[in-house]
């Protein structure tokens, strides 16, 4: 790695941070009330009390922060899991975590769940669902203290099928007005009125990034295979458990607040791997920034394309992410 590689890393981080800031400012400006960039900057610095200030701080900024936290969080969960399984098709939802969260939310909506939990009700039931499924998947795939990754993957996929079947069962049994809420939750949205919740998610997601970067070294060793990593002095069994819990926890937190926003965790790590290579330390940082930027951009599109109707952001991430990825793949040739 000499200096050239380190400056290559710094250059990419710098570029992505600049782009992220630009996208955020753009996103702050557009919406039902258009605010030019100049005014955005003015309002952000000195505009306390104006109507622009209120819109920016009460409506748009929280959404951007949530987009940053969830987009970045899902992207690094994807990097961790793809690295751990050494399988490019794995994403944060492959292990059934999203299914668990969706099941929890559906259940709480069907049973009429606002049982005194107030605004936290859906996130809490989503989180409980995700956590429950995580525990089930973990227990089913840990044999004698060892996790077999191929087994973990298969069980995760099977559990996903089971939870989606259960969700459909619940939907078939539920009232029409509840159905709409369930479907919209599943499609994902960055609309979240509770600022405390957004702060918590942001904190978790940034903490996940720091942890992820430090585990980048171990993930690099693991990218050679479990036996090779073992020979490099890595405590492979412990590492697998920690990585599984870390990725699941980040994903569970994100999903339970925003619903299922697909494709960020699958596509962003891929794109970044094409750009910065396979070193997980830089891959983690760039994926976080790119994931955040991607989700903020998609959410802005979701708000403005058919305004005043707001599209589910999960639809946009799928369309844009899938299209972008196929385009890049075709341009680069099949050099994965």
């Amino acid at each position: 790695m000499g200096l050239d590689r380190r400056s290559f890393w710094l250059w990419w981080i710098f570029l992505l941070v600049v782009l992220l800031v630009a996208v955020s400012l753009f996103s702050l400006g557009v919406g039902a009330v258009h605010i030019p960039i100049k005014k955005v900057l003015q309002a952000l610095t000195t505009g306390r009390g104006t109507s622009e200030y209120a819109i920016l701080f009460a409506v748009r900024l929280p959404r951007i922060l949530l987009g940053l936290a969830v987009g970045g969080g899902l992207a690094i969960a994807g990097v961790i899991l793809q690295g751990m399984f050494r399988n490019p098709l794995v994403e944060p939802y492959t292990l059934g975590i999203s299914g668990g969260a969706a099941l929890g939310v559906t259940l709480s909506m069907v049973v009429g769940g606002s049982t005194g939990l107030g605004l936290f009700s859906l996130p809490v039931s989503g989180f409980l669902g995700a956590g429950g499924i995580m525990a089930v998947v973990y227990m089913l795939s840990a044999r004698g203290g060892m996790i077999k990754l191929s087994l973990l993957l298969l069980i995760g996929v099977m559990i996903s099928f089971i939870t989606s079947s259960l969700i459909m069962l619940l939907m078939a049994l539920t009232k029409v007005q509840d159905l709409h809420g369930i479907i919209f939750w599943i499609m994902g949205s960055l609309q979240e009125p509770n600022i405390t919740l957004i702060k918590v998610i942001l904190f978790i997601s940034l903490g996940g990034l720091v942890a992820g970067v430090f585990f980048g070294v171990d993930l690099n060793a693991l990218s050679l295979g479990e036996e090779e990593a073992f020979h490099l002095g890595v405590e492979v069994e412990r590492l697998k458990k920690i990585l599984f819990l870390l990725a699941s926890f980040i994903t569970g937190c994100c999903v339970s607040v925003t619903g299922i926003i697909g494709f960020v965790g699958l596509v962003i790590p891929h794109l970044m791997r094409l750009v910065v290579g396979g070193d997980h330390r830089i891959l983690m940082i760039t994926s976080y920034l790119a994931g955040a930027m991607f989700l903020i951009l998609c959410d802005t599109l979701a708000r403005v394309v058919l305004a005043p109707v707001e599209l589910p952001v999960g639809v946009i991430t799928g369309l844009v992410g899938g299209g972008l990825f196929i385009y890049v793949l075709n341009r680069r040739g099949a050099s994965l």
Binding site: R86, N220, S223, L224, G225, E227, E228, H231, R273, G277, G278, D279
Partner: peptide, 10 residues
């Protein structure tokens, strides 16, 4: 090791 399981993009 003998025939390591695939190589990373490094």
């Amino acid at each position: 090791t003998q025939s390591p399981e695939g190589v990373p993009p490094l």
